[in-house]
Write a protein that binds this DNA or RNA. Structure first.
Lengths: 350, 350
DNA sequence: GTGGGGGGTGAGAGCGCTCTCACGTCATGG
DNA sequence: CCATGACGTGAGAGCGCTCTCACCCCCCAC
């Protein structure tokens, strides 16, 4: 084993080098008050000269702060990296965290054993907080985390019973219902009569809310949707492909599709092309997210834009505030859930 | 601030609950030898009952082991997440690490200030080792890391002077030169006379090696390539698009293109389609990587396959062995660089 | 001249753990 | 019957840091 550490200078070393006490060095290093500028300068010089870097473990041991937060994504790596939604979100998160010198620990839940491991990890105090994504209805993890008191912020409104009423629950969501409603209304305005929908997994509130928005636009109740116009996808392009194929089989007469995200919409596009349907002439398609797949699709997708990167940033910010790391303005309100607006972007597919 | 920890039981608590000493509990928790099974059982019971979880900071403080490794990618998030190459690689890494209960810290270098922060972080002993990717020729980071003695494994053969000769340098690479040679030879066998190439950034050895392979197949020296058949890309689809456009402008007569990765090849495809060239009839295209963009392209890409996920896994394994965490067979050789083979996959674009 | 602050500094306890070493106990062999 | 050693266990030091508290010194008010 490499024991490359061990020779690293400690606070003590810096202290004796500078001719002061450990406490003073600590104060200087952490920017504490009550040290003469002259001494401060001397210490800084010693730190520089010895190449001192604080030992995080020791610091964490006493402060109970790790300076790291976990990003937990309840999806296999294959999905996490294939879906630009996570990419963008992570980008916003990463940026915000790095601005506060906080590390990002990425944990993806792929296999069953990962649950135990990550649950243990989170409750072991390795991180100061967690950002949780893509939680499905029956996921035991958030409850576990919350129970240990780990500060957490959710990506998307959590769907478990009672979540609605918990004033301490923090999440960042977008107006999924409103966005979906706009999308479908847009299709109707373009004269489409038979609008089908490709859902995301309905154990996620985002997918459910988008389905509700679809029903809203159609002026029907949540359970009155025509089953032959509703197909189930899984937020992947392949899922969209399959769902579109099923829809065409069942309802050959449809003239529009609203897909729960851009990836499924691209899949749908692929199937439509394979079946010789022209888009938008024969069938109009609308996606959701407005990420790369939308712009790059053939034809470019009409879709619903949400500020994904911004949402990631907000999640991080909420968490940092909850942890007490972000600078609070004096009269700052306690952190609260955030719901961002969604706007329709019209391109060539509708 | 939430002080949700603090009430967590310590080793001491478990010890007194089980009626043994701290040392014994520690032995049981860490699976050490020399404890009677009866006592062992009693301690396990107490651990269970009190819900004891070891404090990692304390443990790290004395063992100098953090149980985490950093994955450093010298690319902006936008690229990291857009390129399935990283995704796959990360997948392999993540799997291998989680099998050894080791955490993955993802660090992406986007802005200049990130360099200082990450350099500090790596040398501060927060992690037991680092996996480094996508290093460009002039990157100061690996040197920094290596200098502190941080165990590191590189993704792709490092390109700085002297790297070749350093016996301690660990990396996982693929036979880029051979793969490229195969790709271009294949184009020639199909009767293509004028084969152009779209490079990745030449300050990365992978891109450089692929260019060399191209020259090999053409039977020319590294610097004898016809400049009007060589275009510079950046491993992104947009870059491929632009490079293809330039090539067509300069060499309208070309009948084949070898692109340094699938993403650039897809971009090239897009440009060719926009310019009305048929693939493969007018122009044949070959990519590199054999990841999703290849299979999903229109037409599906002939490309060079490398086992990207496997390479990620190997990197992690090498690192764990270097750190001394992986189970070593008795007569295990010290870890050495790995170069994996590359094989041509023929699809419809050639 | 003396008492009382207050700012700057140091001493020291302790965070929770691991690990070395010493100790006690019991079987073994001369 | 005692020396020997193996084995199981506990005591205690210490990892590097933060933070409280006590201390000292200087300045000011009375």
């Amino acid at each position: 084993m490499h024991t490359f550490r061990g020779s690293r200078p400690t606070l003590e070393a810096v202290a004796s080098h500078a001719g002061v006490s450990r406490a003073t060095v600590s104060r200087v290093v952490n920017g504490g008050p009550g040290v003469r500028e002259e001494v401060r300068e001397k210490v800084r010089h010693s730190v520089e000269e010895l190449g001192y870097v604080p030992n995080n473990a020791a610091r964490t041991l006493v402060t109970r702060r790790t300076g790291a937060v976990a990003v937990v994504i309840a999806e296999p790596e294959s999905r996490v990296f294939a879906d630009p939604f996570f990419a963008q979100q992570l980008r916003g998160i990463s940026r915000e965290l790095s601005d506060h010198d906080t590390q990002l620990l990425l944990m993806m839940l792929e296999r069953q054993k990962d649950y135990a491991r990550i649950g243990r990890y989170l409750s072991a105090g390795h991180v100061d907080g967690a950002l949780m994504f893509s939680l499905h209805g029956d996921d035991p993890l958030p409850a576990m985390a919350l129970q240990t008191g780990l500060p957490a912020v959710f990506g998307g409104r959590p769907g478990w019973p009672g979540a609605e009423d918990d004033p301490d629950l923090l999440y960042v969501d977008t107006d999924n219902r409103g966005g979906a409603r706009q999308a479908v209304a847009h299709l109707q305005e373009r004269g489409r009569r038979t609008v089908a929908v490709i859902n995301g997994p309905l154990d996620q509130t985002s997918a459910l809310d988008r389905l509700h928005g679809y029903c809203d636009a159609l002026g029907i109740g949540a359970h009155e949707a025509d089953p032959s116009l509703v197909a189930q996808g899984d937020f992947t392009a392949e899922g969209g492909e399959r769902a579109m194929a099923r829809l065409l089989d069942v309802s050959p007469g449809l003239d529009a599709v609203f897909a729960g995200n851009d990836l499924m919409a691209s899949g749908a596009l692929r199937t439509l092309r394979a079946r010789g349907r022209r888009v938008p002439d024969d069938v109009a398609v609308v996606g959701y997210d407005d990420l790369e797949p939308a712009a790059w699709a053939e034809p470019p997708l009409t879709t619903v834009r949400q500020d994904v990167e911004g949402m990631g940033g907000m999640m991080a910010e909420l968490l940092l505030r909850r942890i007490g790391l972000a600078e609070e303005s004096v009269d700052a309100a306690p952190p609260r859930p955030v719901v961002t607006p969604a706007t329709l972007v019209v391109r060539d597919s509708s």
